[in-house]
Design a protein around this nucleic acid. Structure first.
Length: 156
DNA sequence: GCCAACGTTGGC
DNA sequence: GCCAACGTTGGC
């Protein structure tokens, strides 16, 4: 199966591309939206490319690249007592929520801002450029991924 | 901090 | 199953 591409959103205050660079890889946990869950559990494969998107940032935008480094696994934070993302509906025997392991690839010298994404031909259909798109896990086409990588590396 | 857009919840 | 109320997201 050929590689797929994704956009993952996170607020830098919670976890930034610099944190991922430091850690090398991280568990992308705490997703509590069914559409996003389905993409993680059913769509992501090891080796897939990830646009690391910083939301609620100045500016918001794609801060770098990552890669899926392990298959999806049940999100144990759902049944961790007192955890901020605890969900009594999800149990080890019957997990509802899934997480994915993401590895650092590259940090862009400059964030490719949402404003730039919106203004770049070829990205009109990209979910993140559409008004009101709140999904924290989004599919990205190979062509869109290539365009954003080019923007991030400063070549036009 | 504001608030529009969206997803979820729950009464009926 | 409808839909109003509510909570959250996220750009600005």
């Amino acid at each position: 199966m050929s590689l797929r591409f994704w956009l993952l959103k996170c607020e830098p205050e919670a976890y930034s591309i610099a944190d991922l660079e430091r850690d090398g890889k991280t568990g992308w946990e705490g997703v509590r939206n069914y559409q996003a869950r389905n993409l993680i559990r059913d769509g992501m494969q090891v080796g897939d490319g990830v646009l690391f998107y910083a939301s609620n940032a100045r500016p918001s935008g794609v801060a770098g690249l990552a890669r899926i480094v392990a298959p999806a696994y049940p999100d144990a934070t759902a049944w961790a007592p007192g955890h901020a993302y605890a969900d009594p509906g999800s149990t080890p025997a019957s997990p509802v929520w899934y997480a994915i392991a993401v590895g650092f690839v590259e940090r862009f010298a400059d964030v490719v801002s949402l404003e730039t994404l919106k203004a770049t031909p070829g990205l009109e259909a990209m979910m993140v450029t559409r008004k009101g798109s709140r999904l924290s896990v989004q599919p990205v086409s190979p062509a869109e991924y290539a365009i954003v990588v080019r923007l991030g590396r400063g070549r036009r």
